[in-house]
Computed example of a mutant assay.
Amino acid sequence: MEKEVRIFIRIQKHRKESWKKLCSKKRISLSSLIIDSVENRIFDDERRKILAFIEKQDNIFVKIETNINQVAKIANAQKFIGSEDLKNFRKQLKIVTELKEQQNKIFTKIYSLIAND
């Protein structure tokens, strides 16, 4: 394990306070902000957002899959789909589409950050 060393930099007091506010807002340390910025890495708060999004997406997809299976079961048994069931089905498909769009934006950002390494 490498020994850590300190680096001292001089900045204006108002700038330091601004950085500390940003860190507080992002719930990251000032050291993390500086190191990740210099090394062009994903910030810890962004990493947390990505993991939370993936977890949320997974939970929603499980619900959607259950609903789709229920619609298919009803349609197969009754040989038709009621308007309320069809409305719910369309709503679930819209959620899937929105999540996929968010996922693609996140993956694009991740890929661009990885490409800079």
Rank of each mutant, 00 (worst) to 15 (best):
Arg15Val: 15
Lys56Asp: 09
Ile35Tyr: 06
Asp85Ala: 10
Ala115Asp: 12
Asn69Ile: 04
Ile60Tyr: 00
Tyr111Phe: 06
Asn69Pro: 02
Lys109Asp: 12
Lys20Ile: 10
Leu33Phe: 08
Val96Ile: 14
Ala77Pro: 01
Glu2Met: 09
Lys21Leu: 14
Ile110Leu: 15
Ser29Gln: 08
Lys3Tyr: 00
Lys16Ile: 04
Glu4Phe: 05
Leu30Arg: 06
Val96Leu: 09
Thr108Ser: 14
Asp44His: 07
Lys109His: 12
Val62Tyr: 12
Phe107Val: 13
Gly82Asp: 15
Ile9Ser: 04
Lys73Gln: 10
Ile68Lys: 03
Asp58Val: 06
Ser18Asp: 07
Gln92Trp: 08
Lys100Gln: 13
Asn67Tyr: 07
Val71Glu: 00
Lys26Trp: 05
Ala115Val: 03
Lys26Ile: 02
Val38His: 04
Thr66Asp: 09
Thr97Leu: 10
Tyr111Pro: 00
Phe89Cys: 07
Leu22Ile: 10
Glu2Trp: 02
Cys23Trp: 02
Leu93Phe: 03
Phe80Val: 14
Leu33Gly: 02
Ile7Gln: 08
Asp85Gln: 14
Gln12Glu: 14
Ala75Leu: 05
Lys100Tyr: 06
Phe80Leu: 15
Ser112Ala: 11
Ala52Glu: 14
Val5Ile: 15
Ile7Trp: 08
Phe43Cys: 05
Trp19Thr: 01
Lys3Val: 10
Lys13Asn: 13
Cys23Ile: 07
Ala52Trp: 08
Leu113Thr: 15
Thr108Asp: 12
Glu39Val: 08
Lys13Leu: 11
Leu30Trp: 05
Lys49Thr: 11
Phe53Leu: 09
Lys26Asp: 10
Leu30Ser: 06
Val71Ile: 15
Thr108Pro: 01
Phe61Gln: 12
Gln70Lys: 08
Ile95Lys: 02
Gln12Leu: 10
Asp85Thr: 08
Asn104Glu: 13
Asn69Ser: 08
Ile9Trp: 02
Arg90Leu: 13
Glu46Val: 13
Thr66Arg: 08
Gln78Gly: 04
Ile35Arg: 15
Thr66Ile: 04
Glu84Ala: 10
Asn59Pro: 04
Cys23Asn: 01
Gln70Tyr: 04
Val38Lys: 07
Val5Thr: 14
Ile28Phe: 01
Asn59Glu: 14
Arg6Trp: 10
Lys91His: 15
Ala75Ser: 13
Gln57Ser: 15
Val96Glu: 02
Ile95Asn: 00
Ile95Tyr: 01
Gln70Asp: 10
Asn59Cys: 05
Leu86Ser: 14
Arg47Val: 13
Ile11Asn: 06
Ala72Thr: 09
Arg6Cys: 08
Phe43Asn: 12
Asp44Gln: 09
